[in-house]
């Protein structure tokens, strides 16, 4: 196994001069990272075990449907074990940067949970109230969670966006987006 790329001394590279140097950040994220590495290993073990129960038809005399899964399972276990060792020895990963990512703030878990909840609600709302309203819920909800104020402007924007997409994609391009019980019978919304 090739050794992991060494993390330069002083933690993550601070290439942007303006913000205060984030070098004084001890690795508080080791637990979550360890869980992810262990999950990778566990998935690999599961793949190895489950591969054994794939039915092999008698006709295939050479490489059957089990061989590749064994290989994949082995790779998962290998990668997972190496990562666990690396993390335990203190060499944690470098999280991804980005234009809108603030490297100096800690993860806001509440936002993550709320976004996932809104997405799940959106999924169940599609059939219940129709796609345009489910879309309004998703857009407005996500925007408010991410900091849009006042909330009613975000909700209004979501509603307009949902209806516009419904008209363009459902009405004009023929995607069968369900308009929902409220808009049943409006001709230009039908997919």
């Amino acid at each position: 196994m090739a050794p992991d790329a060494p993390v330069p001394p002083g933690g993550p590279t601070a290439e942007d001069a303006p913000p205060p140097p984030g070098a004084v950040e001890p690795p508080p994220r080791r637990w979550g990272e360890l869980v992810l590495a262990l999950a990778t290993t566990a998935l690999g073990v599961y793949v190895l075990v489950a591969a054994g129960s794939i039915t092999v038809p008698g006709s295939s005399n050479t490489l059957g449907p089990r061989a590749f899964p064994y290989l994949v399972g082995g790779m998962l276990v290998a990668a997972g074990v190496v990562l666990v060792v690396l993390i335990l020895s203190g060499r944690t990963g470098q999280e991804e940067g980005g234009e809108d990512v603030d490297p100096s703030v800690r993860t806001d878990w509440l936002t993550v949970v709320l976004l996932v909840v809104i997405l799940v609600v959106h999924v169940f709302a599609i059939n219940a109230v129709g796609w345009p309203f489910a879309a309004a819920l998703l857009f407005g909800g996500a925007a408010v969670v991410l900091g849009a104020r006042p909330w009613w402007r975000a909700a209004l924007a979501g509603l307009v966006l949902g209806l516009v997409i419904q008209v363009i994609f459902g009405g004009l391009l023929g995607l069968s987006l369900p308009a929902g019980p409220l808009l049943e019978g409006v001709p230009f919304l039908r997919g």
Partner: peptide
Amino acid sequence: AVYVGSRMRH
């Protein structure tokens, strides 16, 4: 989107 949301630059 979720990742940026978790560490949004305000």
